[in-house]
Design a protein around this nucleic acid. Structure first.
Lengths: 143, 143
DNA sequence: ACCTTGCGGTTGACGTGTCAACTATGATAT
DNA sequence: ATATCATAGTTGACACGTCAACCGCAAGGT
């Protein structure tokens, strides 16, 4: 069993995340039309693959299941942000950023920066950063 | 703009939450068949209303929109966990926990405790608890 | 050659959330 | 009494995620 105080910690932790993350995502969506997922995908295509990546690599780098990615790409393809092309050398699919995707990404970068700074980084003390770093370490090790 | 390190903090923070929260939710669902939302609703009905609550109060206490709650209750009603009854004295709807709902809740409490302890509390130092508390304060103030 | 295995990806069903539009009803002002 | 307004709740469309079942294709073993 868990004490009332411990349960409070849990609730505070959840609501902090929900609030902050929600604000960042909302700003981004309102100002750029991109969701977190959209941004993550375009970002990785740009950084790791200069605009192209194999679907499976992409899924791995985002820690997403192939199903989740497949669904998401279907939606993004419909909006003209990316397109899919079969690989010639081996089986599998290349995901390619369209020019619309590129400009959406470039558009979004500064917006995302500002939102993260304003809604998240601004709130953090040095100690918080320590905690976040350490907790991330311990949380990852578990998996 | 944001430095590489700052972006790392953001990513670490997101993935810690996703990992930990995901583990808790998964344990709960696998062992009790309840989602976070289900549990939250049944919990509040029990604590604040001895099994009954007006829909709007419930929504407020969970920080959910009425729409979100309405959708969720529709699903829970279908599964026999709660039922809805119009108020006689005023307009509005009473949400009532069924006996199936009650036993699901009692069933779930210890499971939730264990999961939160194992996946979350175990990972925390005193300093982390401080940080969580303070950040929650600052994150709430903003809204 | 044939069969199995595993990888890469898609699909459909369903739970979850948001948003905007809608209905209905109580409260308030004139 | 009537018009207006706010509150309570529902609904439909759609984005997002998970899960399990499925398809197609390479690689290896026999």
């Amino acid at each position: 069993m868990i004490s009332e105080e411990e349960m409070q910690i849990w609730h505070m932790w959840k609501s902090s995340y929900t609030n902050i993350f929600g604000r960042v995502v909302k700003d981004m969506f309102e100002q750029t039309g991109l969701s977190e997922g959209d941004f993550g995908i375009l970002d990785r295509l740009d950084l790791y693959g200069k605009g192209k990546l194999r679907q499976q690599e992409l899924a791995d780098s985002m820690d997403w299941t192939k199903s989740r990615l497949s669904h998401h790409l279907t939606r993004m393809e419909k909006r003209g942000l990316v397109l899919r092309e079969p690989l010639e050398t081996e089986r599998g699919v290349q995901v390619i950023t369209t020019s619309a995707g590129k400009s959406a990404l470039n558009n979004a970068r500064p917006v995302v920066s500002v939102a993260i700074r304003e809604h998240f980084l601004e709130l953090l003390t040095e100690q918080d950063i320590d905690s976040i770093t350490n907790l991330a370490e311990r949380a990852k090790a578990k998996s």
